[in-house]
Design a protein around this nucleic acid. Structure first.
Lengths: 144, 144
DNA sequence: CTTTGTGCAAATTCTTTGCACCAAA
DNA sequence: TTTGGTGCAAAGAATTTGCACAAAG
């Protein structure tokens, strides 16, 4: 019998190898974290959550790994929050929403990304849309 | 006779006052810089360009001023560049494009901002779209 | 006077780098 | 044995903060 944990680990491993990234323990852990936590975490959050289980993990390795993953196009770097970079392993088209009150960052599904008409000669290989406002939970708190 | 410089300074002053911001020398200088330089500068660029003319200017004041301007909705904070925040005094709807090669950040005019359909209860008061790719100039260099 | 803005330096926070060590091919 | 990958500490960069002084009403 194959455990669920092993299934996930295999998906993680394959995705890394597909992009020419050697699946070390630390890289697998970071990638698995991103795939199982859709919270758009910062490097710091990832480190803090993983550290208890992987005491040999260092913050520099988390940063290095995230940079590598972004470079190879395995995860998205999200700059919706000025303070620190956030990461997302979901590469399907979607936009991000940040709540001004609680700071939560949510995914909003869309058919496809909007790419505005560009001036002649300009080529676009990536586009991101960020929306900022108030989430349903925070709106309810105010109105009730 | 009214000098062109005075006209600009008056517009700057009015725009600040309209948002309840006292038009000090430093604030006027930062705002005028943003309105006359459509380069989406960083706080550092603004400081470096203004410093020769205003030797008493301090970098902290530039940061404080920019934060105030963003807070009051007089300028836009742009996070298209991971390293540092960029600012834009143009509040008309437009999207930003960054060239991977030369790093330039260009404005792209659009009719209106795209605001995707949000989940129930979510309200959006701001949206930003960033496109990344290669600008016309850099594409030409490669192809010729 | 009282309030508000500013300069300065120090502090914080986020991120990258250099280097020695370790593990796998 | 050679090639990465990692941990650690230190460096670096961007931004914020605390405080005393200056300016303006």
């Amino acid at each position: 019998m194959i455990l669920k944990m092993d299934v996930i680990k295999n998906i993680v491993k394959e995705r890394l190898q597909l992009h020419g990234i050697k699946p070390s323990l630390q890289r697998m852990a970071v990638m698995e974290y991103l795939m199982t936590h859709r919270t758009h975490p910062t490097a710091d959050m990832i480190f803090n959550d993983l550290y208890p289980d992987i005491p040999t993990l260092s913050k520099a390795t988390v940063y290095n790994t995230l940079n590598l993953l972004v470079e190879r196009g395995v995860v998205r770097l999200i700059t919706i929050e000025e303070k620190s970079a956030r990461f997302d392993a979901c590469m399907d088209p979607h936009v991000h929403f940040r709540c001004r009150s609680c700071g939560a960052i949510l995914d909003v599904n869309v058919e496809a990304h909007w790419i505005p008409t560009m001036p002649d000669g300009v080529t676009v290989d990536m586009s991101e849309t960020y929306c900022i406002g108030h989430c349903a939970k925070c709106n309810n708190l105010v109105n009730n």
